[in-house]
Computed example of a mutant assay.
Amino acid sequence: MDKIKAIAALSALGQDTRLEVFRLLVRAGPDGLPAGEIGALLGAVQNTMSAHLKVLDHAGLVRAERDGRMIRYVVDMTGFRDLLAYLMEDCCNGKPELCQPVIKAVTCDC
């Protein structure tokens, strides 16, 4: 991931509703959620939620998948991983043991 893409991803997550959407989709896992359900769960109107989802999609953090007539959104784990890798690229100045608490915190037992 380059600096421009990292800034876009961080900017997308720097807004309250978009951060909540992203966290909701992380919890939803690989099945994701339909756009309408995301809006209902977060109490947002359709056009506003659509705009937030579009920003997250353009930032490479979520992706839209057509499921019949509905659009389902899932976290783009590659984009998420690339953002974390970019942020930790120069971690600990050659002392990887200092990064272990961070790595452990972002590793799940999924």
Rank of each mutant, 00 (worst) to 15 (best):
T78A: 06
R18S: 08
L41I: 08
G36H: 09
L83D: 07
E65N: 12
A28R: 08
P34F: 01
C108I: 11
D67E: 12
N93S: 12
C92N: 05
D90R: 09
S50Q: 15
L83N: 11
H58R: 14
A44C: 11
K104N: 14
C91V: 06
G29Q: 07
P101N: 09
T17K: 10
P101F: 07
R72V: 15
G43R: 02
P30F: 11
L98W: 05
V45G: 13
H52S: 09
T17H: 10
P30C: 03
E97P: 00
T17V: 14
D16Q: 09
M49L: 13
F80H: 14
G29Y: 08
R81D: 12
A12E: 00
T48K: 08
L13N: 03
A8F: 05
K104A: 11
L25F: 01
A8K: 10
D31R: 14
C110H: 13
C92Q: 04
K54F: 03
S11R: 05
A9F: 00
L98A: 13
D76F: 02
D90F: 01
A12R: 00
L53V: 01
G36A: 10
V55E: 07
L42V: 07
Y73A: 03
V21C: 06
G68R: 08
I7T: 13
H58I: 05
P30K: 15
G79T: 11
